[in-house]
Design a protein around this nucleic acid. Structure first.
Lengths: 132, 132
DNA sequence: GGTTGTTAGTTACAAAAGCAACTACTACGA
DNA sequence: TCGTAGTAGTTGCTTTTGTAACTAACAACC
């Protein structure tokens, strides 16, 4: 089962990779961070680690890369200067919207191979699996 | 969807990782090569690339590692000396059987979270996805 | 106020993956 | 038989990931 999941994840991820890589020179980790900030609003790196199940070093590096691209900004929180609130810049938000649109297109195309019920069930099962 | 698949693949793969890593000091790539040889019999590195969707350098390095562990042997084919038939040694076959048993246990435990139909459907859907 | 422990995030170093150039071999046509 | 092209597999170099040690900031306790 892990093997099947990896195969499926690999095949689908690779076909979508071009969207963020070719257009914006982003890595997968960067796209994931951008996605979480766009989808759920400003948060700290730590929170991204938790939500996206990414290791903090990966997040740290992705944040720096996105910052250099001017896609996000950090703001040290005044009440606890260890925390840095991360938020998308207008440019970052624009990129996010563009890529989300692309992702939806991609997902629709992918799911065209399956019936609506199959797609829904698949999604539900994967969510349960990912939460184990 | 790729994101969900990756999450699920990551979670499940990591829990099984210990089986081959801790006991036999194998990498995931090595386990995959060993698995294909054990499951489908002797074949060339090229064939493994195709079946397992792995890049040839990954396969090449995994084969060398497995050879050093005495889990597999190579035999240059006499009709075309570019080809090397890879096959498991008795030790390799034993390791394969052990890990397959472990994998089945793992899979059973994983699927205990789901009904039999759900598990079957999931498997079928993933196979279709992986073949896109 | 200073020591101790804890947390957010970074950095340095090691392991692994990806890519492109390479070797060794075969096939085929001039 | 020579030259060209193509294939199986390896090696060297670069990029990315993982791990562990680190810095900076805070909190709590004495």
């Amino acid at each position: 089962m892990p093997y099947l999941l990896n195969q499926a994840a690999d095949v689908t991820s690779r076909s979508f990779e071009g969207a963020y890589k070719d257009r914006y020179g982003m890595l997968r980790t960067e796209w994931r961070v951008l996605f979480h900030l766009g989808r759920y609003g400003a948060m700290t790196a730590k929170e991204i680690c938790g939500r996206a199940r990414m290791h903090k070093t990966k997040v740290s590096r992705a944040v720096r890369a996105l910052e250099e691209k001017r896609f996000l900004e950090r703001q040290t929180r005044s009440d606890d200067r260890r925390h840095e609130m991360l938020s998308l810049t207008p440019t970052g938000a624009r990129v996010f919207r563009d890529l989300v649109k692309e992702a939806q297109r991609f997902d629709t195309a992918l799911m065209a191979e399956f019936s609506a019920e199959e797609a829904a069930q698949m999604r539900a099962l994967l969510i349960r699996l990912a939460q184990l």
